[in-house]
């Protein structure tokens, strides 16, 4: 395990030049990949939610949970499994309606799904019958803006290192590539807020490390707000500006830790280890 840790340490420091060089080669594009849509705010106050499980019993998932996200910050949500993290994300993107509480995005209540609030799913959740290219194009086509914005797709494919796989189908590519494709599919929409539902949980350590850097890169470029639900404490400390800890079901706020370490973060630095310890203690 120490060896793996050692290998990962070299990643953030050495990856940056490559990331930037890709960015430079992309910049001459005639139109921007991401447009500045201003500052966005998500306010969730006192959210309560229940859902029916497979046997028809009612499960109390969220209890008086509050969270607000403003501007380009990455907020992590961490907590024991089944504590309502994913339930909260479903409310944020508008897939479900809360039982009670206030949920507003840019001052308007969240009532239905909207391309501005996008989501990156567990295991990528790609459409198997579409090629990688068409998976990324799906949102643009669905909103009938494909012709105006299709120039974004090749740029994203290059950024995500998917060149040569544009015409492959999801079952033909690796899990890491599927996750990259899922990222591109969400970010081609120029979203203001992106929710991540344990996006990297099924990946191996190396792929996960490189995907984490991709996520940071996308956040830097798009200036979108991000909410990342994860089980992985190290991932939370590596990616997030602050981490919200939830209690076991029904989930409500247990505490919050602000992580003000500069990027790229060193996974074995004292600051990193301290934050990690704090988070573990808070989780109990």
């Amino acid at each position: 395990m120490a060896e793996v840790g050692g290998a990962l340490v070299t990643t953030p420091a050495t990856i940056k030049p490559i990331v930037q060089s890709v960015g430079v080669s992309v910049q001459p594009a005639p139109q921007p990949l991401f447009e500045d849509t201003g500052n966005h705010t998500l306010i969730a106050e006192g959210l309560t939610q229940t859902f029916l499980d497979d046997t028809g019993g009612e499960v109390w998932a969220l209890d008086n949970f509050s969270l607000s996200v403003t501007g380009p910050e990455i907020v992590g949500i961490i907590g024991p499994s089944g504590c309502g993290k994913s339930t909260f994300l479903r409310l944020v993107v508008g897939l479900d309606d809360p039982l009670s509480g206030r949920l507003e995005f840019d001052g308007k209540p969240v009532e239905h799904t909207d391309y501005q609030r996008s989501m990156v799913f567990q295991n990528a959740n790609l459409f198997e019958w579409l090629t990688v290219y068409n998976n990324i194009a799906f949102g643009l086509k669905a909103r009938h803006i494909y012709k105006q914005q299709c120039y974004k797709i090749p740029i994203l494919i290059e950024m995500m290192g998917l060149e040569g796989f544009e015409h492959s189908y999801p079952p033909q590519i690796s899990g890491g590539m599927a996750s990259r494709c899922g990222l591109a599919r969400a970010f081609v929409q120029n979203p203001a807020l992106v929710c991540f539902d344990e996006p990297l949980s099924a990946l191996d350590a190396f792929t996960r490390a490189s995907l984490q850097d991709e996520i940071l890169k996308m956040q830097q470029k798009s200036q979108a707000s991000m909410i990342i639900v994860t089980h992985d404490i190290e991932e939370a400390v590596y990616l997030c500006d602050r981490v919200v800890v939830m209690t076991p079901r029904p989930g409500h706020n247990k505490g919050e830790i602000v992580i003000d370490l500069p990027h790229p973060r060193d996974r074995v630095s004292d600051g990193f280890v301290t934050k990690r310890k704090q988070l573990i203690e808070l989780l109990g």
Binding site: V93, N125, F138, A142, A186
Partner: peptide, 24 residues
């Protein structure tokens, strides 16, 4: 999950029927 992914990406119900449900 596929339908929800399409919905989150901004697809209308009719679009989901013809581009998600039928291909699947």
């Amino acid at each position: 999950r596929k339908i929800e992914a399409a919905r989150v990406l901004g697809a209308s119900e009719a679009y989901i029927l013809f581009h998600v449900a039928l291909p699947a």
